[in-house]
Amino acid sequence: MSNMHIKMTVNGKAVEGLAEPRTLLIHFLRENLNLTGPHIGCDTSHCGACTVDINGKSVKSCTMFVAQAQGADVTTIEGIAEADGTLHALQEAFREHHGLQCGFCTPGMITRALRLLQENPDPSEEEIRYGISGNLCRCTGYQNIVTAIRAAADQLNTAREAAE
């Protein structure tokens, strides 16, 4: 089958490339665009390690054809820190609260948590657990991930109030 000319916005930049329509978005991101932050954990739509943000939704990029993302606005873990390298509050909180051990699930966790906090800036512990239930972690037991997300929510809310 012939290649498609793929164009999309990734982390705020217009990107393009040639790929077969059947190419999974995760492969396009990792192999064509060299964005190896999103990981392939299960390849069966379960683990969430491949989570990216597409048009305002958290999506498992192993379960989307690149053709479906034609024209989309995509954010990966690489696009979450400031341009000068200053970490996002979520990234800081994961570091501060030991929200990771091996780090394999972390890009997916943080990308998902970012969308969760955008939709619900003040989540309860239960809402956080439910909100990240599509992301598996084999190391932490989740407790510190939940703590980190809650701490980031506080941090972001304080910063928002200060700005108002």
Binding site: T51, K57, V59, R112, G131, S133, G134
Partner: peptide
């Protein structure tokens, strides 16, 4: 399913 699946 889970949040990611439900968005799609």
């Amino acid at each position: 399913a889970d949040p990611q699946v439900r968005y799609c």
